[in-house]
């Protein structure tokens, strides 16, 4: 048994001597949004197979978490690129600048639609943003027309609007930590909220109050938080045809044989409708490059080149097969040029 100890001891010494200093890095490190993750990983994999460079390592941290890591500083221990399902904020640009990161290139890769879907066994729904807002907000304008907020009394979709079916409101969606939830609250909920003129007027007086009225989601049961796992939502929809789910378009696209998207404000969430803007609940997706790293980490320029190529995010690029909605051509040209020359972002 003494021998065993000697072996264990000497191997552990050997292992520590292996711990060479990590003064250089030849793999691109990417962090950021879980919505962009399925697209970025596809590009990374192609890039790794096509070129002589290593496949970039992509970590899914959420948009906010990714920008926080990204803005920590320059150096190999910090990520080179961060993905985001929303635009960078001025406060984030400032914190980046405080850490010495002054040159950031912004690339928009396309759009993602947020869909409200149910099982194909259920009834196909046609909703308006206003109905979505009324069904899911904690405080609704008094149904009798008075301009005051009362606790949301609606239990079924029929309560919200007599033209809707008589089924309980049950919406499965992401938790507040998710970018999808932020976008849903901003685009769908606030969009519906604005249709009440007196609520829209609050914005001028007190923006915070307006946001808390328009972007909150009720917590008394009808909205069920199902975590960040969109697959789970999809399988729960199939179990209960009366419930609706909120998630990114790519999950509808991949599961179109079992679930169907609801019409919102007269447009179905189809590829064409999201691309031409007639389906309104959609948001842009971005990634940000630390220009200072482009010279020291091999492959960054080539990776950006691959991501902004027509083959990837153009009208028929391979990312469209994964559910990305491509940008219109003029926008595409602007960002692919920015990607080629790494033109830093000036101001928002």
């Amino acid at each position: 048994m003494n021998k065993l100890f000697k072996i264990a001891f000497s191997t552990s010494i050997f292992f520590f001597s292996l711990t060479i200093d990590a003064a250089s890095r030849d793999t691109i490190k990417i962090v950021g949004s879980s919505t962009v993750y399925p697209f970025a990983t596809v590009v990374a994999e192609r890039f790794g197979k096509k070129t002589i460079y290593n496949t970039p390592v992509i970590e899914s941290t959420g948009s906010g978490g990714g920008l926080k890591l990204f803005c920590k500083g320059i150096g190999i221990e910090h990520p080179d690129i961060t993905n985001a399902s929303r635009r960078i904020k001025q406060s984030e640009i400032d914190s980046c600048a405080a850490a010495g990161i002054t040159e950031i290139t912004e690339i928009k890769i396309g759009y993602d639609g947020i869909v409200i879907a149910n099982s194909r066994q259920g009834q196909k729904l046609s909703l308006t943003k206003r109905q979505i807002f009324l069904a899911l907000t904690p405080m609704v304008p008094n149904p009798n027309g008075e301009e005051v907020l009362v606790k949301n009394p609606y239990k079924t979709w029929k309560d919200v609007d007599p033209t809707l079916p008589n089924i309980d409101i049950e919406v499965l969606g992401p938790p507040p930590s998710s970018g999808t939830r932020d976008a849903f609250a901003e685009l769908a909920m606030e969009g519906g909220c604005k249709t009440f003129k007196w609520l829209a007027d609050i914005k001028k007086q007190d923006e915070n109050k307006y946001k808390s009225i328009c972007r909150s989601v009720r917590e008394d049961g009808p909205y069920i938080e199902v975590g960040e796992n969109d697959n789970l939502i999809v399988s729960k929809l199939n179990a209960n045809p009366n419930s609706l789910g909120v998630f990114g378009y790519s999950f509808l696209d991949q599961n179109s044989d079992t679930i169907q998207g609801s019409m919102v404000d007269g447009a179905y969430p189809t590829f064409e409708n999201i691309a031409d803007g007639s389906y309104k609940v959609s948001r842009p997706l971005y990634f940000y490059i630390k220009n200072a790293h482009a010279a020291s980490i091999p492959g960054i320029k080539e990776y950006v080149r691959e991501f902004t190529s027509r083959g990837a995010i153009g009208q028929t690029g391979y990312l469209t097969d994964k559910g990305l909605i491509p940008m219109p051509n003029n926008e595409y040209k602007e960002f692919s040029a920015a990607g080629k020359k790494l033109i830093p972002l000036k101001t928002l």
Binding site: Y37, T41, E45, N54, T55, V57, E59, S60
Partner: peptide, 9 residues
């Protein structure tokens, strides 16, 4: 510690 990452190699 960041091991939820897409690593091909």
């Amino acid at each position: 510690i960041g091991m939820v990452a897409f690593v091909v190699d």
